[in-house]
Amino acid sequence: MNIFRLTGDLAHLIAIIILLHKIWKSRSCAGISGKSQVLFALVYTTRYLDLVTSYVSIYNTFMKFVFLATSYATIYLIYVKFKATYDHNHDTFRIEFLILPSLALALLINHYFNFLEVLWTFSIYLESVAILPQLFMVSKTGEAESITSHYLFALGSYRALYILNWIYRYATEGHYDLIAIVAGVVQTVLYCDFFYLYITKVLKGKKLQLPA
């Protein structure tokens, strides 16, 4: 474990808590893409199946349960509890165009062709594009509430910090995982446009307006 990965996990946890708190407090999921949340739940479910087969550390196990529980809780809030506030009209990204190619790629490019490893690889590829429905929704509505942009900033930062972690691990342990690195770079690049707007606008108190 290193400071980059620790702050990365913290940023990830903060993002999830910001979102849950926003939906719970405002009792509304307006502006939130339920489809991205479904993709995240699919990412954690397929990635953390190894909870039953291997043990890394109490931290690792605890965080996996937290991510699984919070992602399903968020889906419950969006599709069940506050489903009246769910914005069907703007959350229209075809997620099958993200799931199927990720699965196909995971079957073709992986470290080992066995069940858990292919699912892990699928979760890595899917996570890199899981935010697209949310970014698409923000661009369709043309704007995002500032709390939603804080959520996106924290979520985007988590994988950017993981890139620093991978550099650090390669430099100190000679350890690297190309699949995770390439997907992580793609994932972070997808946020760049948003990062620019967040830093130039939201931090100056303006509303986040994405060119529709």
Partner: peptide, 10 residues
Amino acid sequence: HEETILHDEL
């Protein structure tokens, strides 16, 4: 040449 990798990252 183990068939399973221990993924230690979240």
